[in-house]
Design a protein around this nucleic acid. Structure first.
Lengths: 241, 241
DNA sequence: GTATATTGTTGACATATATCAACAATATAA
DNA sequence: TTATATTGTTGATATATGTCAACAATATAC
């Protein structure tokens, strides 16, 4: 695990970035911290930059940090027995990222890798534990975050087990557009292999479905840029299985 | 949703069952409650008995309770679009059961059905929320429980997406023996269809794999009783995919 | 008890998806 | 630039798994 400190960015970071780092969509875990708590957090945290491709942390290692992504895109990879990989989720700006079993066994149950360059902060789990113990509102927000991830995973599980490939690819494209890149012709920094790994299928199969969508006029593909022309069609395909 | 109050059992229940209801394996969430809190819990909770097959609660309805199973076996069913079902997990004695997205959207994201007769307690989420807010240790325990369920689901996801059918059946049999029934020739109250739904495959396929295991001498099957003769073999098959 | 419905079992067959191999298009390095 | 590696694409083929239909074995009702 190679890490490089970026002192400049860290200096900039000191002022208020932690508020954003803890901001996960609508719910801002940060809001629940007192000024004192936020201050001690800013002092404690370590600010790191990972290059594209670098491993941020590795499955089955000990987990004594949680990570807040300030900028960039990271992928959560569950590594199975036989070299197979499943990309469970992506994390982009302002995501908070626990080891998955925080306070339980303190072991990472998945690998996290930088897709693009990732700027992030590591916070010791002791401090988080301290907040949880002393600040019930923070604990509550963390509980909510956890529940949210739980539900996302459940949906994923149902989708991957019950849908045919076109439905799964639809789901992926909608996810990328609406939850990750947030713009329509989005330039995915993900390789075809990575996108296939998110849908639990082969790269070749993924490419074939993508081509079908292209010839049906549902999307346009220009290199790594994907343009969704007919979102309703994708939603329909997603529903039908 | 038909429910039948069982006043007798409820009377019995008043003394100390809640301590057990909140006991999920090693971690006892109950331990973190004060005597006063436990008392108010015992007063508030509603004790219910469901017959085998009855729906305890239904996906997409509002979730204003958590449920503690005192006795019996229940299944968590995620219902997909096209009639397909996936049984995510089983809950047996002393399991605590949230709607999946507690405090988040207060909507059940899965259906829960009684497999055998189920005796359980409903506790209003207001009370749980109150405990979370006032008792950080309780919040912490709930967080751990949540994390645990999260990890189980992740393992499930990886297993179902990456393993061939024999590996998945192995996983199921080991799960039933070691985590649910806790004895070796176990009499599964689950139908073949239900067991198939836990592995994301067809009933016919499930039966075929079971037969393979039988002819290989790994298991014996006598009606609904399954005897695992060679657990190591199952573990090996599980690993190999 | 017999009748009827439900659940389990097996076989023949269809098909979704993976595998393998060749090649095209990029990106990276020298 | 040219050379080399990586990534993407396509086709032919194999295979894991699903579908359908017939029948056996239970459980449930009458």
């Amino acid at each position: 695990m190679e890490t490089k400190k970026n002192e400049d960015a860290c200096a900039i970071c000191t002022d208020r970035c932690c508020s954003r780092c803890f901001d996960d969509g609508d719910d801002s875990i940060f809001d629940s911290l007192t000024t004192d708590e936020l201050d001690s957090l800013v002092k404690e945290k370590r600010h790191l930059v990972f290059k594209a491709g670098e491993t941020i942390f590795k499955q089955n290692t000990s987990a004594r940090n949680i990570v807040c992504i300030k900028r960039g895109l990271a992928k959560i990879v569950a590594e199975g027995e036989n070299e197979k990989k499943l990309i469970v989720r992506l994390y982009s700006n302002h995501s908070i990222l626990t080891g998955g079993s925080m306070f339980l066994d303190e072991i990472r149950h998945f690998t996290v890798q930088a897709v693009t360059e990732v700027e992030c902060c590591f916070i010791g789990s002791d401090m988080i534990l301290d907040f949880v113990t002393k600040n019930s509102q923070f604990a509550f927000e963390l509980l909510k975050l956890n529940n949210k991830q739980n539900m996302q995973m459940l949906n994923n599980l149902v989708g991957i087990t019950q849908k045919y490939m076109p439905g799964r690819v639809s789901d992926l494209l909608l996810y990328l557009k609406n939850e990750i890149f947030l713009c329509n012709p989005f330039v995915s920094r993900l390789s075809r292999q990575e996108m296939a790994d998110m849908t639990g299928m082969t790269m070749e199969s993924f490419i074939r479905i993508l081509k079908e969508f292209k010839t049906s006029g549902i999307i346009t593909v220009d290199g790594s840029a994907i343009h969704i022309l007919d979102e309703e069609a994708l939603q329909l395909i997603s529903k039908k299985g």
